Amino acid sequence: QLLPIAAEQLQWMPYVNPKLHMPMIKFIYWSIRQLDTDIQHGTMRSTMRRLGEDIFKGIVSKGSPDSSSEQSTESKSKSAAFFKSSCMPLRFLSTLIVLKTLTQVDYLAQAFDSLRVDLKTNEGKALFLEYRCVPVVLSHLKVSSRGLLSSALDGFLEMTMESGSSQPFLEACSNESFFRTCSVLLQSSKLDIPVLEKLCVILQKLSRIKSNKMMFELFALHQMLQELRRTINPDHTFLCINLNSILLNLELLKNNSLASSLST
């Protein structure tokens, strides 16, 4: 019930102190996270789309809210930027809202580009953890949208880079939802090699966590990876190395077998 009101309040953001923009966007983000967008009725979907588009494009208004229409036309326009803000926390949250509310591929592609750039910084990685972003990005790991799939994996790859955020990120991925999604992806015959490489890098990092062995087995990932290793062209060296490393971590490949496969 509050989100339609929030959508209306966004229109007034050019007239309020910019310091109030962040609390407003934060409220919208956490409200959206509480909703299951798949079961909303038409009115709510429309509200979500409007929120996403306004946050993506920003709000531009002419004149002050108290001025007459004639005065308003002559007044200097005011604007409030969210997704295109120079303030990283505001831009980061706005990016997440775009990823949660919009379906247009061009908007989502720009959102993932922005996310990837921000995740190259320690501040961006910390924000990713603070706002519990794994489910937001995970929802875009679908074979049906290959371009976005690769972009979503790029975001996850940035989080696996050695930093103080990498281990908490991997722990946030160590759940049934994440492994189920990976299982669905690996069952597809439509994944190209670059996507497989990115996915296996992430799985290799996750396979280092001993408790995740159960997750690999629960969703039969270990069997899929064994079959992939058996059938993959050995010329795809990087992919083969990661597959071998995963299977070694899962105790499904002996060290001497690994050495033999790498030497061939």
Rank of each mutant, 00 (worst) to 15 (best):
Y131W: 10
C240K: 09
A259T: 13
K205L: 02
F56K: 04
E251W: 03
E53H: 04
E217C: 13
D36E: 13
G164P: 14
I5V: 14
L141E: 01
L96T: 00
W12C: 09
L228H: 02
F219A: 06
P65R: 04
R229G: 01
D235I: 13
V137W: 00
P18V: 03
F238S: 14
V60P: 13
F178Y: 03
A81N: 15
L129A: 06
K62C: 10
R33F: 08
D192R: 10
I193H: 09
M22S: 08
R91V: 08
L96Y: 01
E171G: 08
N255F: 15
L186K: 03
K190E: 10
L99D: 04
S260P: 10
K78C: 02
S145T: 14
L203H: 04
K100L: 10
S79L: 12
N249F: 00
F219R: 03
L96A: 01
K78G: 01
L99R: 11
M159Q: 07
W12L: 11
R180M: 13
V137M: 00
I59F: 05
P89H: 06
S257P: 02
R91E: 12
P4I: 07
I202V: 15
G63P: 02
R116V: 14
I59A: 02
M159F: 08
L115W: 01
S165D: 13
L170D: 05
L191F: 12
R49F: 14
G58K: 08
S69C: 00
C173L: 04
L248D: 00
L206T: 00
L228D: 02
V98R: 14
E171P: 08
P89N: 06
A80D: 10
S189A: 03
T101G: 01
L262T: 01
Q11K: 11
Q9V: 06
F216V: 14
L153W: 05
S64G: 06
L253V: 10
S77A: 11
S211K: 06
M88G: 02
S69M: 05
V201M: 06
V60D: 15
V195Y: 09
Q110E: 13
S64D: 11
E227T: 10
T73A: 10
V117N: 07
E158K: 09
L93K: 08
V201Q: 11
E162S: 14
K125S: 12
